[in-house]
Design a protein around this nucleic acid. Structure first.
Lengths: 204, 204, 204, 204
DNA sequence: AATGAATGAGACTTCATTCAT
DNA sequence: AATGAATGAAGTCTCATTCAT
């Protein structure tokens, strides 16, 4: 009977994906508080109760949207660290891998510290986020050691500025609205990170 | 008996300031949707109704918090434009003047387009915000013309990146928590804007 | 010192009259629930607290508006009863005397049994209203005895129909809006009471 | 499975009827402002939220009570106009058809112009009410032309007096309290309209 | 499993009434 | 006496969550 079960399981997962995708879309568009469970249910054509079969709380549904993005970001950080290239290339890799992910965007949109919304996941979040940041800090410190990055700037300062680059307004304006090719957008962002807005003299 | 009138007026303004300050604090901490009128009232030790004596709607109270910051930012933009110095100095002036203001921070915190919250003030906002951005764009274009700023980066891209620098987490972490002197924080931020995180070769 | 006191007393009464007149106007216009104490105070240029120096409760203020009209109606009933004329003339006298008074109009406007609003005055009201009705009933019974009024119609039916004639919409429409002279309006109303809408054959 | 759907639909309608009936009862008893949504919910043993499933606003619930009565009255007016009989019979038909409906009663009870309460339905109301009145006026003018009704009385005067006959106090007192048979009540009312309170000489 | 009607806590807002000045 | 700021009970409405079908 395994196939039958896995068929059901498959359907269940498809349904769940449907929910998560639509929820993500709406959350990005309107933020946590302006998206109701009703709206999500109606939007994908299921009953409100069905959402609750998959996710016991709104918090759980939303966290299910956010967690993989956080996870993916962590993974990318780990991958970046493992690259043979230098720290600059590692950061560029991260940018290119995650710039379009909606994770941090969502957080900023929601306008709350994550823990305000995800009270039940505080422990989990406090396990993942620090690893993300310490991974970035490692890369940044490596850059400082190699004389590439400004030794005067605290790594916390740098990493925060780095994270801010993932803010969604700019992406939407440039790529979605103005049809700037993603690669161009990524290059610009990466340039901005590495040499600010000044006209470069020596590097691409 | 003008003094008597102005005494009352003074008290009224003090009370209003009390409300606005506490509201700002809470809004920055928890965002629009997670701060209730009740909470604000209790927090400053007045009854709910008292808030409504000063501000007919929650929207009005919150806009009264935001407007002066928006206004101040616009003023600073105008002042920056009027400076005799070059575009770089103008942007630095803006950073130094407004980096600690909580306006954009609040917006990001609130996680919605302003007009989602401030429906009644849409017209007003749509009058102020564009002037802020076009002012910044003028400075940026001036910089491009003078060969200072990267001509490849769209000014919208630059201005958006510039605005992102005002995000509050970093400020709080560095200045409030780690006791970094504000001047140092401003210099770092300004450096970041102008030359990215790379070790500088030729400029301060 | 009597004159001084009576001067103050006079001013007090003038102020009270001002309040009562404005309150009556607004009550008639918008009804009990749609007129706020604030509105009344502002409308006559005094502070809200001042209203409460004269009338401890909204109920008291409104009853102070209503009571004299009720009283006046009762007086007119008594006067009508005392007339030398027949019952028809007595009713006509009542109509002519009270048709323009706003008492019953106000009640209808307020849309509640009087006792819903005037809880504290229930006893008083239950003393006056029955006297009004029994006075009218006396006249009606006199008319029945004299073979003038339809003996089949219960007096309660007649008196209620009679009271309904005081409804304000018609008065406002005809006299205020269409500028029908009051005497004509009274004659029409009186005709209606005595012979309905049919074309009269024998009496004016 | 249409029957299943119609079962739910049926239950929904039953529930809605329950709400409407109880709301009507309370509205008639205490008027718009003195009936709270809470009170209605509690009164029929459901939660407040349930009311809002059926009617998004208090205004909507109340209008759902009023509209059918208004509609029914309009229908009766149209039917009356279409009768083969004379104008007197037409009015009598209207009286007999609608005297027990609570529509105008409710309006009077509510003590406000309908449009004060039903702001969102102003257009709809301004479409129905004038048709009611102009229908009545047609009948009245027909009566005048045929020499039946007093040509001196403006039709607006007559129609307003006619409407006043639907006032609820009298009905409740006579029929509900004193157990007067409805037919008798209707006959009395009709007599009152056509010949006033005078003892009739020539007509029943 | 799926549904969606029902629930009720909690948010915003109004307004009669009180009270310090 | 007069003021009007302050109060807080009460009302309308929303929405995450539950539960009978």
């Amino acid at each position: 009977m395994t196939p039958k079960i896995s068929l059901k399981e498959k359907q269940r997962e498809e349904r769940e994906r449907l929910i998560l995708d639509y929820a993500e879309k709406m959350l990005l568009e309107k933020g946590y508080h302006d998206v109701s469970m009703d709206e999500i249910a109606t939007g994908i054509g299921v009953a409100k109760g069905t959402l609750y079969l998959h996710f016991p709380k709104k918090e759980d549904l939303v966290y299910a949207v956010v967690k993989p993005k956080m996870q993916s970001f962590l993974n990318s950080v780990e991958e970046a660290k493992a690259l043979a290239d230098g720290p600059k290339e590692k950061l560029a890799y991260l940018l290119q891998r995650e710039l379009t992910g909606a994770f941090f965007q969502f957080l900023l949109k929601s306008g709350s510290d994550m823990t305000t919304i995800f009270k039940s996941y505080e422990t989990e979040i406090n396990e993942i986020l620090p690893r993300i940041f310490s991974g970035i800090h490692e890369i940044l410190n490596e850059g400082k050691r190699k004389g590439l990055f400004d030794p005067a700037l605290p790594v916390e300062f740098m990493s925060s500025a780095f994270i801010n680059l993932f803010e969604p307004h700019l992406y939407r304006e440039m790529v979605t609205v103005r049809k700037m090719p993603v690669e161009v957008f990524i290059r610009y962002t990466s340039d901005l990170l590495f040499r600010g807005i000044m006209k470069s003299r020596e590097m691409k």
